[in-house]
Design a protein around this nucleic acid. Structure first.
Lengths: 102, 102
DNA sequence: CATTATCGTAAGTCATAACTTACCGTAAGC
DNA sequence: GCTTACGGTAAGTTATGACTTACGATAATG
């Protein structure tokens, strides 16, 4: 049940911005806060959520912590969405067929 | 920019439950409310959000409205996640390589 | 050691959004 | 045409979560 944490985490715009910044390159908390319109503690709290969702991973380096992407959460989220992929396309095809039948 | 509506929409548990119920089969609002622990207006409001995210589509049928899945939102959401797919796996591979180098 | 840099956490504020009940419009059935 | 089903919307309440400032802990630096 990690996928719902991932969805919840990525639902917030600021958190998504942090996630996207880490996709560019791994960064420290201060570096991330530098590029965001919120305070450093706010970024820190967002990172906590992202780590909980397994979307992000921290590696201590001296007094700093370098955050980077963790594929685990994304894999879980994608797997969840894939469960509906065939259903959705199938339903859509059936819909198109039904409307064409008129 | 439909993908962020889709993420926001699927972030809510009740809305996800409605979405999953529609994945099983198209249903009316009353039918959906029947299977959920919330009131019918609540379901109606959730459906409005899901429609806005292009995750769900309504087809009027007499006084009832049959809701069904709309692939548009899912496609957009999946496309967004795919943007990070290679980055994430690449970053992970680099990480593994780095740790193996010790 | 003392200082400085980096970060996490606590506490409190404020906006938002997920509910509820009540109400109104609209299409079918008798 | 009246009534009945169905569903969307309005209004109000309440919980949650996204932010702020203040503080504490830890590791490098001189």
């Amino acid at each position: 049940m990690t996928y719902d944490n991932a969805i919840t985490a990525l639902a917030d715009p600021t958190r998504r911005a942090v996630f996207e910044a880490l996709a560019v390159k791994p960064q420290s908390v201060a570096d991330l806060a530098q590029g965001q319109p919120v305070s450093r503690p706010a970024v820190s709290q967002h990172l906590k959520v992202l780590v909980g969702a397994r979307l992000v991973k921290a590696t201590p380096q001296g007094t700093r912590r370098i955050y980077a992407l963790d594929p685990t959460g994304l894999i879980a989220l994608r797997a969840y969405l894939d469960r509906f992929w065939d259903d959705t396309l199938g339903a859509y095809a059936a819909e198109v067929r039904r409307q064409s039948a008129n």
